[in-house]
Simulated scan of single mutants.
Amino acid sequence: MTDDRLSRMFAALADPTRRDIVSRLAAGDATVGELAEPYDVSTQAVSKHLRVLEQAGLISRGRQAQTRPCHLEADVLDLATKWIERYRLAAEERYRRLDAVLAELDSTADSQDTDSPPAQEAS
């Protein structure tokens, strides 16, 4: 089930307009009209983007009098953060092991260089 949520979330965030909407909602709740203002598209088009974000669980819509402000569900982003962090830590561990192997190879090469007699120059 988590993979489905991640897939929906990453698919929703694949669109630059939706990413921009998420970043704007991080500053505070906004109505569809407020969110549509900076874009050269219809309010209906922004509503479709909001529906995708809502289905992915990234936003929710409240009810205040006649408006339905959109609210960022930031805790859902924790799911993506944890997923990314797991793979980042695994990659870092691989790099640490590689660094250790390379350091070992380097110290072995250095010790072999000091054990060898100096090369004699041809006269």
Rank of each mutant, 00 (worst) to 15 (best):
A65L: 06
L98V: 03
A14P: 04
A119K: 12
R5N: 15
E121P: 00
E54C: 10
S47W: 07
A26R: 08
L58A: 10
D4Y: 05
L89Y: 13
R8E: 15
A56E: 01
L105C: 10
S123A: 11
R8P: 14
I59T: 05
D115I: 02
R5T: 12
A65H: 00
Q120M: 00
M1I: 05
L58K: 01
A90M: 00
R24M: 05
D15C: 07
S116W: 09
P16Q: 14
D106K: 12
L79P: 01
G57D: 08
Y39T: 04
R5A: 15
M1H: 15
T31D: 11
I59G: 10
A36T: 15
L25D: 11
L13F: 03
A103G: 00
P69H: 07
K82V: 11
H71G: 05
Q55K: 08
A36C: 06
L79E: 14
Y87C: 03
L53K: 07
D115K: 07
V41D: 02
P16I: 04
D75H: 10
R19S: 14
R63Q: 03
I84T: 09
A80L: 03
S47C: 01
L98I: 08
D3P: 13
W83I: 05
A74S: 13
V46K: 10
I21F: 02
A36W: 08
R51E: 12
A103M: 06
H49Q: 11
L50E: 13
E85G: 07
P118A: 05
A65F: 11
T81I: 03
A119W: 12
L53C: 02
H49M: 00
P69I: 04
M9R: 13
A74W: 14
D113T: 09
R63C: 00
T2S: 08
R94H: 14
A74L: 14
W83A: 15
T2E: 04
L89Q: 08
V76N: 15
G33Y: 09
T67I: 00
S42D: 00
L35M: 02
E73P: 04
Q66K: 09
A14Q: 01
A11E: 05
R19F: 06
T43E: 14
L102R: 11
H49N: 08
V46E: 10
Q120D: 00
M1A: 15
G28V: 00
L50V: 15
D115C: 07
E104W: 11
A65S: 06
G28P: 03
